[in-house]
């Protein structure tokens, strides 16, 4: 039940991110959407690790069950990779803004087409 709720939350966040990516024309907003999508995957990973009644995976704790530690490690990695992607997305946005003075991807897309 708990896990389903967590999955659903993650799915909702993912839907928000994807929706933003599909509908927003501003590059900054698209960056935010990408970031939201990354977060949803982290949430999904953590939800996947959930074990009913499990403690945090630290050996010092006296507990009967621990949650699955591997998705936590993967989540950390995924966060960092998401951060890297986000950084270059922002860098591209800044570069575009410096050159064109706008961050509207739809207009930029048409302005920079090569074969007109």
């Amino acid at each position: 039940m708990m896990q389903t709720a967590a999955y659903l939350t993650a799915a909702g966040v993912f839907a928000i991110g994807l929706y933003g990516m599909l509908t927003q024309r501003d590059m900054i907003k698209i960056c935010i959407s990408i970031s939201i999508m990354d977060s949803s995957f982290v949430m999904a990973l953590v939800a996947a690790a959930y074990v009913p009644g499990g403690a945090a995976p630290i050996a010092g704790f006296e507990a009967l069950r621990f949650v699955d530690p591997l998705p936590h490690a993967l989540a950390l990695t995924a966060i960092v990779i998401g951060a890297g992607i986000l950084a270059i997305a922002l860098a591209l946005t800044v570069a575009v803004y410096r050159h064109y003075g706008t961050t509207d991807i739809a207009r930029l897309f048409i302005a920079t087409r090569e074969d007109s």
Binding site: I30, A89, A95, V96, H99, F109
Partner: peptide, 20 residues
């Protein structure tokens, strides 16, 4: 190349979906 950052961004969007 002025258009390249835009092209890079589009490629990045595609790559995001692909990675997801």
């Amino acid at each position: 190349h002025p258009g390249s950052a835009v092209a890079g961004f589009v490629a990045l969007m595609a790559a995001t979906i692909s990675g997801a």
